[in-house]
């Protein structure tokens, strides 16, 4: 099971990278970034998975036997941080795209040649 999840994460990350590199539309490039982000998050969560164990919430599980019954809570906490940061980065990129569209009335990456060398 965990092999399926981790390979899905890697596949999504590759797909996102392909989108970033090959797409011409700024919005599609930003979508590529978010797909990349999602893939890496899935990989991180699956690293914390322990075979056959439950989520790290002690409602039915007693605290004394928690160590043998739950998955690792640490990667999940780190992924929560990563999701929030990813949201901030995505919002910033979208706002920059909005501003670029105001300048040139176009979202095509090829129409922005000011920094090209």
């Amino acid at each position: 099971m965990e092999y399926i999840i981790i390979s899905t994460g890697f596949a999504l990350a590759l797909l996102g990278l392909w989108g970033i590199l090959s797409q011409k539309n700024l919005i599609k490039i930003i979508l590529g970034f978010t797909i990349f982000n999602t893939g890496i998050n899935i990989v991180m969560v699956s690293i914390g998975y322990v075979r056959g164990k439950a989520a790290p919430i002690l409602d039915v599980i007693k605290p004394s036997e928690a160590a043998d019954k739950i998955v690792d809570p640490l990667p999940q906490a780190l992924v929560l941080t990563a999701i929030v940061i990813g949201l901030g980065v995505t919002a910033l990129m979208l706002v920059y795209a909005l501003n670029l569209h105001r300048e040139k009335n176009s979202l095509d990456i090829n129409s922005f040649k000011d920094l090209k060398w």
């Binding site: 322990v50 790290p56 919430i57 640490l74």
Partner: peptide, 30 residues
């Protein structure tokens, strides 16, 4: 795939309930 918790995860699982008192261990960590 792992069969047992890692060292850090084991610490949180064993001491989280006594030290922090939160049922959701992810919240205790965060």
């Amino acid at each position: 795939g792992s069969e047992v918790l890692g060292k850090t995860g084991r610490y949180y699982a064993e001491n989280g309930a006594d030290e922090v008192g939160a049922a959701n261990l992810v919240t205790a960590v965060i």
